[in-house]
């Protein structure tokens, strides 16, 4: 489980943070409401999850709330039987 969470966290750090502030986020950090992931680049995160875990996330599931923290994303993945 923490493998998956760490993989997501790594991706987010690489994709959205500048080198200087990389240690600032954890599994609970609000990503979208906290302004780290802007709603425009959510699409990258969605594609990353789909490709990495071989799932299809319908737009109705890929909401800003569902993507708002690594823990939330992990729960979403559970719904799609990613373990």
């Amino acid at each position: 489980m923490s493998d998956i969470k760490n993989a997501i966290l790594d991706y987010i750090k690489n994709e959205y943070l500048e080198e200087e502030d990389e240690d600032d986020i954890d599994f609970d950090t609000p990503l979208i409401s906290g302004g780290i992931v802007d709603s425009f680049s959510m699409v990258s995160l969605k594609v990353f999850l789909e490709v990495t875990y071989k799932i299809q996330l319908p737009d109705s599931k890929a909401t800003p709330e569902a993507f708002d923290s690594v823990n939330n994303i992990y729960e979403l993945l559970n719904e799609f039987n990613v373990q």
Partner: peptide, 25 residues
């Protein structure tokens, strides 16, 4: 596909458009 620091007016234009959106650092 927009630079992450584009001007607010571009962001609004993109919000009003149905095309897919993404950003780059």
């Amino acid at each position: 596909i927009a630079d992450r620091l584009v001007h607010a007016s571009i962001v609004d234009g993109m919000r009003l458009c149905k095309a897919q959106r993404d950003t780059y650092k």
